[in-house]
Design a protein around this nucleic acid. Structure first.
Length: 564
RNA sequence: GCGCCCGUAGCUCAGUGGAUAGAGCGUCAGGUUGCGGACCUGAAGGUCGUGGGUUCGAGUCCCGCCGGGCGCGCCA
């Protein structure tokens, strides 16, 4: 007797049912209790082959060693319990049938009831479809992009921007509260450096070799307001700083506009200067000092990072009295935690991996849980045009901007590209190839399926056929079977994405769902005025497919068009 | 030199210790009296970089080697 909660993902219902069967087998003495040691978790997976059922469990294989019995024997005993449950026709029981296969797999078939109940849920609450019960509700701060305001965002910033946004969406889908945050390094020497380049152009002098050389610097010089310029010239040595401040603000506005183009919205913008002004950096340094985690040497103040496993100690106050960038990082950690976050995530390029340990070490030294400070490092993207690598240098003015990339490739295709690849894999992005193949891009395949369904539903309205509220009796066989099974899997995909903090499972799933829809479309006529009841049932299934496609694309920030 | 990441089909990439390693693109051969052909069906294509080890079972875990990327500042 198994009572399943229909609001849980089907895989979870099945897992509970298999676990219950195992417990019953133990209770009636058919299986011995597990001896001391780790108890195998009940794992439910989707078999690669359709003849292995809808879902499968390797539980018997896992139990073989601790129970010291043959996996096939264990599988048969558990299968008998599951089969008895199914034979009772317990209302809502998710499993309709079970087979045992060598070397000890339990192959499970879903019941019509669970399929019907799930499709009915999709139709009753389309917006809620795919939301999973929160596993680990937390308030999370996700900091990403955080490029210096010394030039426009380039394609080099693209991956971090998309990964940060996609990760945020996936965390939200998993029930967490996410704040998207951007950190501007507006202190240091790069702002005056940018100012120096603008000043040089304005004076008709050559730009310094280590200055910034892009066309955008020329534009900045041309747009420099007269009052800023006269203030700068009057200030003498401070001219670079004053012009740099203005240029930085100007560049920042452009960065914010580019990010809006990407569909990436930040909740909080923080500047390094504001952290210093509000005293966060000083207080953090004092906190480390009070804890005995710093020492002076060569006139500088060092954080004893080696005490937490780093390979060297790190300077936080230079011998000239200036705090380092790392000191601001430490202050920022305390400032973020003061806002009530349980968890801080940093999205960094792989070139920053050397700084991971020191920031987490400093957090631990200040009394925070280092596990609450997490860095997600993404691998570098090799941008290629016609097979030749595009080398980029913001200072030398050699780069392709993010805006140009979007103009060439399109935001949906670009989002799909990054969503379908794990963050840690090094990838090639051939811009010409992306353009050439844009018509063949899988994202359009998925969007086309959505548009096709929208067209069918319009057709149905014209024929005065409305989708049924539920689909009954036709899901175990025929063209409906594969499509229904693809639809109901969506919450599991969301759950896996939230758990793994990766999105490529979602793109793979969306592609497969689109494939199942296209196959259904081939085999089943949906709008047929001669068969109104069957039409209404098929319209309901197709509407559920459309909702699922739209929600999967929505999870990735990709549009679901009514027509293309 | 040390540390981290990566190596899977022609190309771009999935693969959470399980069954005959998958998808898209590309290539080849087919498909439309019908709701959108941006679609569908099929085929070819793999020593999972390499050599050991652990395991009932390894693309997956451990060790060595080869190849590629990145890092090793009182820069940011």
């Amino acid at each position: 007797m198994t009572s399943a909660d229909p609001s849980l993902p089907i895989r979870t219902q099945v897992r509970d049912a298999v676990a219950a069967a195992w417990r019953r087998a133990v209770a009636r003495g058919a299986l011995p209790d597990t001896p001391d040691g780790p108890v195998p978790a009940v794992e439910i997976e989707r078999p690669a082959k359709a003849e292995h059922g809808d879902l499968a469990s390797n539980l018997a294989l896992k139990l073989a060693r601790p129970l010291r019995r043959a996996p096939l024997d264990i599988a048969r005993i558990i299968a008998d319990e599951i089969a008895a449950d199914a034979a009772d026709r317990t209302p809502g029981a998710p499993i309709a049938g079970v087979d045992v296969a060598a070397p000890g797999f339990l192959n499970l078939r879903l019941s019509d009831q669970v399929l019907e109940a799930t499709i009915a849920r999709v139709l009753a609450d389309p917006d809620g479809w795919g939301r999973v019960p929160p596993v680990n509700p937390r308030a999370v701060n996700v900091e990403f992009v955080s490029a210096n305001p010394t030039g426009p965002l380039t394609i080099g910033n693209a991956r971090g921007a998309f990964i940060g946004d996609l990760l945020s969406r996936v965390l939200e889908a998993g029930g967490q509260t996410v704040t998207r945050e951007y950190y501007f390094n507006d202190r240091g020497g790069q702002i005056p450096n940018l100012g120096a380049s603008v000043v040089a152009i304005r004076r008709g002098e050559p730009i310094p070799d280590d200055g910034y050389h892009g066309d955008y610097v020329v534009s900045l010089a041309a747009d420099l307001p007269e009052d800023v310029w006269s203030e700068a010239t009057a200030a003498g040595a401070e001219a670079n700083q004053i012009v740099g401040q203005w240029a930085g603000m100007r560049v920042r506005a452009g960065i914010e506009a580019s990010l809006e183009q990407l569909g990436v919205h930040f909740d909080v913008w923080t500047t390094e200067a504001s952290l210093h002004e509000a005293g966060w950096v000083d207080r953090a340094v004092e906190r480390l000092r009070a804890g005995g985690h710093v020492y002076e040497q060569d006139g500088a103040l060092w954080f004893r990072s080696t005490a937490f496993g780093d390979d060297k100690d790190r300077v936080i106050i230079r011998s000239n009295g200036e705090p380092t960038y790392f000191a601001a990082d430490i202050g920022y950690v305390t400032e973020k935690f003061s806002r009530g976050f349980d968890h801080l995530i940093y999205i960094w390029g792989a070139d920053h991996h050397g700084t991971v340990a020191r920031v987490r070490n400093a957090a631990e030294a200040m009394g925070y849980d280092r596990e609450a400070v997490q860095m997600l490092l993404y691998a570098w993207v090799r941008f290629v045009r016609d097979g030749a690598e595009i080398s980029m240098s913001k200072r030398a003015g050699e780069f392709v901007t993010l805006d140009e990339l979007l103009e060439e490739v399109g935001v949906d295709a670009a989002r799909w590209f990054f969503a379908s690849r794990a963050a840690t894999t090094e990838i090639d992005f051939d811009i010409e190839l992306a353009k050439k193949q844009s018509a063949e891009n899988p994202v359009y395949y998925v969007q086309y399926a959505h548009a096709r369904i929208a067209s069918i539903l319009r057709k149905a309205t014209d024929a005065s056929l409305a989708p049924a509220d539920a689909v009954e009796g036709s899901l175990s066989a025929g063209p409906e079977a594969a499509l229904a099974r693809a639809i109901v899997r969506f919450p599991e995909v969301v759950e896996d994405a939230a758990t793994s903090e990766e999105t490529h499972g979602v793109t793979a799933y969306a592609t497969e769902l689109a494939t199942q829809f296209h196959a259904f479309y081939r085999d089943a006529r949906v709008v047929d005025e001669a068969e109104p009841e069957r039409s209404r049932a098929r319209l309901a299934l197709v509407a559920a497919a459309r909702t699922t496609l739209a929600n999967a694309l929505g999870l990735l920030g990709i549009s679901a068009p009514e027509s293309m």
